[in-house]
């Protein structure tokens, strides 16, 4: 068996595979299939300052090699998360990344400061959600807003801070650098790409919210490209995600520069995907005589 352990900004992971935020709830449902300790970590559903009810249904649409979702950050709010979900998660012998979001930088900071008082291992700040003080454009689409929200959260917590980037931008490296400059310890990328589908018989969008986030195999090459560009532009580690369904996909993101890998939509196709991917990565490393998965991080040899 190859050495699958990785370290991301000081946090040790037994293996690089982490179910992505929003697909895995707080782990309870998937624990029915396998022990959560088999996972490198878990990124929890995005949590905001107050309870959010989310968008009306339909929230899911199938797309070629992927899916759209418009769940809309439905969550019970940070207090309920800390009281009802986090204590249970912290007993699972796996790294817990608390994914957070907010409508203002102040809300994000408040959520982070509440988490700072807990034993959560990492905070993952989702900057893809709309910033109500800036006309609803996502924090993650402007360097200034991304820097501001990162700085506010950085002041609120000493926990390892991972900032999750939006791919819906012209230059991902500019945003990444802005976030790094404000004290992010790591980056995670990519969040979903904005998309839309129309039912041609009813002429109605399939999603009640009209538009939604695209994830799944369709976005894998976008993720590889953005991770590679970003890894060359910043010096903080990257947690990669986007369309990973096999061990080789995960290896590909790591070769592009990721130190760990999250798995989203693949959990829906195959609930065992995260643990299967760990096994497949191990097999790949064995077959290729690579002793440690750490040896492949950023090992792509570009032309």
């Amino acid at each position: 068996m190859a050495d699958l352990s990785v370290n991301v900004c000081g946090v040790d992971f037994k293996n690089p595979i982490i179910p992505a935020s929003g697909v895995f709830g707080y782990g309870r449902e998937y624990e029915e299939f396998y022990p959560l300790s088999a996972l490198g970590g878990i990124s929890t559903k995005g949590t905001t300052g107050q309870l959010r009810t989310g968008n009306p249904a339909p929230r899911i649409a199938e797309t070629p090699s992927g899916m759209l979702n418009s769940v809309g950050l439905q969550n019970p709010g940070i207090d309920a998360f800390i009281e009802k979900e986090l204590p249970n998660l912290l007993t699972k012998d796996t790294v817990i990344l608390a994914n957070i979001a907010g409508a203002t930088a102040e809300e994000c900071a408040e959520v982070a400061s509440k988490l700072d008082a807990t034993d959560v291992h990492m905070i993952e700040l989702n900057i893809s959600c709309p910033n109500v003080k800036q006309g609803g454009a996502a924090f993650g689409t402007s360097c200034t807003a991304a820097a501001q929200v990162t700085a506010a959260v950085r002041r609120a917590t000493k926990k390892p801070l991972v900032v999750k980037l939006s791919p819906n931008v012209t230059s991902i490296t500019e945003i990444a650098k802005a976030v790094e400059a404000e004290g992010a310890d790591a980056l995670s990328m990519i969040n979903t790409l904005l998309g839309m589908r129309i039912d041609v018989r009813t002429r109605r969008p399939v999603l009640r919210n009209n538009v939604g986030g695209l994830s799944g195999p369709a976005i894998l090459p976008v993720a590889v490209r953005m991770i590679w560009q970003t890894a060359n532009a910043v010096s903080i580690p990257i947690i990669g995600m986007g369309g990973v369904t096999t061990g080789e996909d995960a290896i590909e993101l790591m070769m592009a520069g990721a130190s760990a890998v999250q798995v989203g939509m693949a959990c829906f196709t195959d609930p065992y995907a995260p643990v299967r991917i760990v096994r497949e990565m191990d097999a790949f490393l064995e077959e290729n005589g690579i002793a440690s998965v750490r040896d492949i991080i950023g090992s792509v040899q570009p032309w």
Partner: peptide
């Protein structure tokens, strides 16, 4: 999507 209550898709 998930069918098990994790993704909050089927509201």
């Amino acid at each position: 999507a998930c069918g098990v209550g994790a993704c909050l898709g089927c509201a």
